[in-house]
Amino acid sequence: MSVQRPALDELLGLLREGDTVLVAHFFRLGRRRDHVIHLFNSFYQRGIHFKALDLGINTTTSAGKFMFSIFASLTEYDREGILEKTKAGQQLAAAQGKHIGRPKGLYEQS
């Protein structure tokens, strides 16, 4: 899934230190959790604040920074769990002799 979105790219190009990104819903900023976390880390490094109205996250306050770190930790934990389950499923399928990956083509390539 692509993380490139023209309006988001334009916003990222305009942001300066001290600016605040405001979203109505926490995960509307990015399409994938890891992309959202990457954006937040970028904001932090550039001195840009973030507010999410649905969760009450406001990184201009110490409580908001704490909330953000909790959500970031939870999403990372969730992501690791998904990766572990995926790997276990792949290993089980391989042990049962099932093909993993893209299907083979119709014609052999030389």
Rank of each mutant, 00 (worst) to 15 (best):
I48C: 12
M67T: 00
S42K: 14
P103Y: 07
D9P: 15
K65N: 02
T20N: 10
Y44E: 14
D34L: 08
R46I: 04
D54C: 00
R5Q: 01
R31P: 01
L39T: 14
D78L: 14
Q45N: 12
G47E: 06
G81H: 01
R16K: 13
G97R: 07
A72V: 09
A88R: 04
G89P: 01
S62Y: 10
S2Q: 12
L29P: 03
I48K: 11
L14S: 13
R5S: 12
I37N: 07
A7H: 15
T75A: 15
L14R: 13
Y44D: 15
F43M: 06
A24F: 11
T20D: 01
I48S: 12
G97Q: 03
K87E: 12
L74V: 02
Q45S: 07
L106D: 06
R5W: 06
G64L: 03
E80G: 13
S69V: 01
V21E: 03
R33P: 04
F71N: 13
K98R: 13
A24H: 02
D19P: 01
S73K: 05
H49K: 06
F40Y: 09
S69G: 05
Y44V: 13
E108I: 14
T20L: 06
S110Y: 10
I100S: 08
L12N: 04
I37W: 03
L55Y: 06
L11W: 02
M67R: 05
S69K: 03
L92F: 12
L22T: 15
G89C: 06
V3E: 08
G101T: 04
G13W: 02
F71Y: 12
D78A: 07
V23R: 05
T59C: 04
S62T: 02
G47R: 03
T59K: 02
G64V: 04
A88N: 08
L55G: 01
K98P: 13
L83C: 10
S42N: 14
L83A: 10
A93H: 07
R32T: 07
D34A: 06
G89L: 00
G64N: 02
E108L: 15
E76G: 11
F26L: 03
K98M: 15
R33E: 04
